[in-house]
Simulated assay, not measured.
Amino acid sequence: MSSLLVLNGPNLNLLGTRQPDVYGRTTLADIEQMCAAHAKALNVSLSFEQSNLEGEMIDHIHAAKGLHDVIILNAGAYTHTSVALMDAISSVELPVIELHLSNVHAREEFRHKSFIAPVALGIICGFGARGYTLAMDAAVNHLEIAR
Rank of each mutant, 00 (worst) to 15 (best):
A129D: 10
A106D: 13
H112G: 02
A120C: 06
H142E: 12
L94G: 02
R107F: 08
I89M: 14
Y132K: 04
H112Q: 13
C125Q: 13
N103E: 09
R111A: 09
S102F: 03
R111L: 07
I89K: 00
A106Q: 15
I124L: 15
V119C: 12
I124P: 06
V119W: 05
I89N: 00
E93C: 04
L121P: 02
G126P: 08
K113F: 14
E98L: 00
L101F: 10
V104M: 08
F127G: 03
A129G: 07
S102Y: 01
I97H: 00
A135C: 14
K113L: 11
P118N: 08
A139H: 06
L101Q: 13
F127D: 06
V92Y: 04
E98C: 02
E98R: 01
G122W: 01
A138Q: 09
G126R: 12
M136P: 09
E109I: 14
V92E: 04
G126M: 11
V140T: 14
N103F: 13
V92W: 04
E98D: 15
V96P: 02
V96N: 03
N141V: 01
L143G: 03
A135W: 10
V140F: 09
I123N: 07
T133K: 09
D137F: 10
Y132E: 11
S114A: 02
E108W: 03
S114E: 07
L99G: 08
V140A: 06
I124F: 11
S91N: 12
N103G: 09
